[in-house]
Amino acid sequence: MLAEGIRAHRWWIVAAAVGFAVLLTAPAYLTPFQVRVGQLFLFSAGLGVAWTILGGFAGYWSFGHTAFIGLGAFVAGAFELHVPLGSPVATMVAGTALGSLACAAVSAVIAYPILRLRGIYFAIAMLGVSQVFAELTNNVDAFKGTMGINMPNAVPASMEPQTFFYYVFVAATALTLGVAFWVKVSRLGYGLVSIREDEDTARMLGVPTERYKIWAFVLSATLTGLLGIVYAHALGYITTGSVYRTDFSLNMIVYALLGGIGTIVGPVLGSALMVWLTQVVLGRLLDVHMFITGALLVAIVLLAPHGLVGFARKLLRRGAGGGA
């Protein structure tokens, strides 16, 4: 299956390889500000793709995925604070692994009950979950949610912090893309898509819907957590407010919607466009960020419900001439 999937998507894979080659060399000729924008793009694209594994493939739209950004960040942070290992890099690696594992474990525990909800009820329940996690982080002493945690500094002396985290983000995002691609072309991916299209019929065809939904949820949550942990390290200092952010939850959906829901390239394009718009074009208009995000959201849903990818497909189909 994987071989077949690779063959069918070989041009996408080539494009992704070229893209990552460019990304890897980019810090050599970018300004520090641009490198930071690059970080944000990688983080956003990774989040959008991680969200897509559940929301785009299986059709279970989570409105609270920031729960896993926060959970991962705080578990990693608390561990690194209390159990420093020999070298800072080893501490960071161990904390990252533990935080991601925590996301996997917690998502596996809540998956079964919460995935029995469908549509908006699942969406809102996830919003609830993220709020509960945030409140608990604020009130559980080990996490120091309100006071915040200083993430131990793991940046090698020879490197600029923004460049170091840029490369860490490249790795995390590449991993996320790889996992998402593997899911997409595997049996799991087809099963998830059939769940999105019609869950009852999927079950009738023998798709193990419960198990597949749980897999998608856990993979999505773990990758979201991993990205969140990297983000926390890049921030250097985290509070509940800086990692449990409802706008993260929202942005993941916006990236996917803007680019094209259910595809992998969609959230990548969507995040590129959004990051470029908000950081570069509107960088000085911080006051109206929220207004513009909202307006964009409304515009996408009304004007391009299938996103940039859907729009491009429509153009291609029209260009091909006479196709139905």
Binding site: R187, Y190, V193, S194, E197, D198, T201, L205, P208
Partner: peptide
Amino acid sequence: FPELSVRDNVRIGALF
């Protein structure tokens, strides 16, 4: 499965 191609509809049957 409304938004999938005829082939993918059948493929899901075959896969599972």
